[in-house]
Write a protein that binds this DNA or RNA. Structure first.
Lengths: 249, 249
DNA sequence: TAGTGGTCTAGACCACTTG
DNA sequence: AAGTGGTCTAGACCACTAC
């Protein structure tokens, strides 16, 4: 009992509750790949026994990671490591044509893909030194046989080197599953910023829209399980197809 | 014990856990005004005793309402009914000029305010019969001595009747605190939908922007504690001042 | 010092899923 | 039937806030 009290005081001094510490340890195992995405983690009872804590406490730790979106609980089946984002989530911002336009995956056409020197700002995003190398990709996305979105994507090297080996016609329509299978990167979180401007000449040409047509610009930072930025993306689409819903409080 | 088991079975049959039921009862007291916004609710121990349940269960019930945004817990002080939205939250979508533009409250200029017959769609939003009366308000909002936003607001009558009695020059810059003080309505949730279009002649005039200038349109449905829609608002602003950040997962 | 919420324990039984 | 998470109990002590 005295041991437990002492331990409690030490952890409190460190600024973390017991379940907070446990949550951090569980997170470490997920991040390290010890428990891969889609797999079940050990049962509550087993974990409680392993850490030498009560059931309620391990449940609290798990609840933290569920809240963070790292874990998913399913009654009767177990607790699972969440798979990464599908990547189709960018379409949340646009509604093109048909009724099922929201769910359909637009076809991807790679316009260019080459290794480049990252400028200072871009390298900093990826936590790399200035002048580090990256992959610069230009992509056009089609829906209903019409060009809908224009994307400029930057990825850090050498982390995404495997992509260079794979011919672009084998990439498929979604980047994130590709990052998972080829580079072992799970995209766990993305932050999108929306602004608005008019299209440049070349952009308008590629999107088959009039010159200086209004467009919505979505700037995305995507992060892996560790919280490291692993993608910077600039998406442009017809402003008049933009539609977004926000729920406040 | 047998009583408790029986009760458990009945409640399960009803599809609600014990803490779910308790949460519903607490919510009812909040909605009814029994526990007004900003006030503390009784302590956990007192509630547990009143409902004849364990501490952990009442805590779970409270957690539900915290998650819904109805309650707020503060260690050492108590659990409080959350006050409604301030109404300034619409500025989340726009960044005008200065650094503190995000926090500043724009000055409100009421252009018109009159009682009208609501059309079918509008009456349905408010849960009123077709042809019911409502208040139609046009408002222009200023920041840095420039017109920034144009708002068309509809409110249900007779719920908001008190507003008609008050001269518009005494309304102040924020609508929601006014709805609280004059009509006893707490705005607890809002759903905003963003689209883009170009300005009509009259709109461009009022915003001192060129004709057919691109604009962002925010369509808002606001709801009270009961979940009833109590405001429909259409806000228009310069598209080039639009900026919004979304965090995915 | 008294009262509040925050953390933690060591059990019990229930509901759901799978084999 | 066995294993999982979901609900609930009846306590204990700690950290924070206010008087």
């Amino acid at each position: 009992m005295a041991d437990i009290d002492l331990l409690q005081k030490i952890t409190s001094a460190a600024g973390l509750s017991r379940y907070g510490q446990i949550a951090a340890q569980l997170q470490a195992r997920i991040v390290s790949g010890d428990w891969p995405p889609g797999e079940a983690i050990p049962a509550e009872g087993a974990l409680a026994k392993e850490f030498g804590i009560a059931l309620g406490t391990i449940r609290q730790a798990i609840a933290v990671l569920v809240q963070e979106g790292l874990l998913e609980r399913v009654q009767g089946r177990g607790t699972f490591v969440r798979k990464g984002l599908s990547g189709a989530s960018l379409m949340r911002f646009f509604r093109f044509g048909g009724a099922d336009g929201a769910t359909a995956v637009p076809r991807s056409e790679i316009l260019s893909c080459r290794a480049v020197r990252l400028d200072k700002a871009m390298a900093e995003r990826f936590g790399l030194p200035s002048g580090a190398r990256g992959l610069a990709i230009t992509r056009r996305r089609w829906l209903d046989d019409k060009p809908r979105l224009l994307e400029s994507i930057w990825l850090p090297l050498p982390r995404c080197e495997a992509l260079q080996q794979l011919p672009v016609w084998e990439w498929g329509d979604l980047l994130y599953p590709l990052l998972g299978s080829q580079c072992g990167i799970t995209v766990h979180r993305a932050v999108d910023e929306v602004t608005f401007r008019t299209l440049a000449h070349d952009e308008a040409d590629l999107l088959e829209l009039p010159d200086a047509h209004p467009c919505a610009v979505v700037t995305r930072h995507a992060f892996d399980l560790r919280g490291t930025c692993i993608e910077y993306r600039l998406t442009r689409g017809d402003a008049f197809a933009f539609r977004y819903t926000a729920d406040i409080r």
